[in-house]
């Protein structure tokens, strides 16, 4: 019905956060890149790309199924008052689950990248210590 509106709301918020983090990183020079050398604004861009990409493609699916129209009230469910409650229920359950799952996958991606590069970094230090 309108489940994609929840990830869209999250995407708007995370896009604003990414811009603000980018500005802070530019002000402070290198920014907080951590051991991986990846800035937080770069890591947040992965989340934004997944959220906006998903939202755009899901919006097409909703238009295809006649659940979203290009004219007011835009959401077909809004035409009938009886459909509003199920729509809000779907947004609260399916929409929230979508947003949480995408964010969880992104968090796992960030953790995996940090651990992998930290492992490579530690291995390099060990080799240098052995040579010395």
């Amino acid at each position: 019905m309108a489940c994609f509106l929840v990830p869209m709301g999250e995407a708007i918020v995370t896009s604003v956060i990414q811009r603000s983090v980018e500005k802070k990183e530019k002000k402070s020079g290198e920014g907080n890149a951590g051991q991986t050398g990846l800035r937080w604004s770069h890591k947040l861009s992965w989340l934004n790309k997944m959220l906006w990409g998903g939202v755009i493609l899901l919006a097409l699916e909703h238009v295809w199924h006649g659940e979203v129209t290009p004219w007011p009230p835009f959401l077909t469910a809004m035409k009938n008052p009886a459909d509003v409650a199920p729509m809000l229920h779907e947004m609260a359950t399916v929409g929230t689950a979508m947003a949480v799952t995408v964010t969880a996958v992104w968090a796992l991606m960030v953790i995996a990248v940090e651990l992998m590069i930290r492992g490579i970094h530690n291995a390099k230090i060990r080799i240098v210590e052995e040579v010395e």
Binding site: L58, E61, M98, V102
Partner: peptide
């Protein structure tokens, strides 16, 4: 290509969650 793959992965995750919940509920 990183952008393209993240667009596809975002949509895949969302539709997967939608399909799982529609199947369970």
């Amino acid at each position: 290509l990183g952008l393209l793959s993240l667009i596809f992965w975002g949509a895949t995750i969302m539709w997967f969650v939608d399909a799982v919940m529609a199947h369970l509920i």
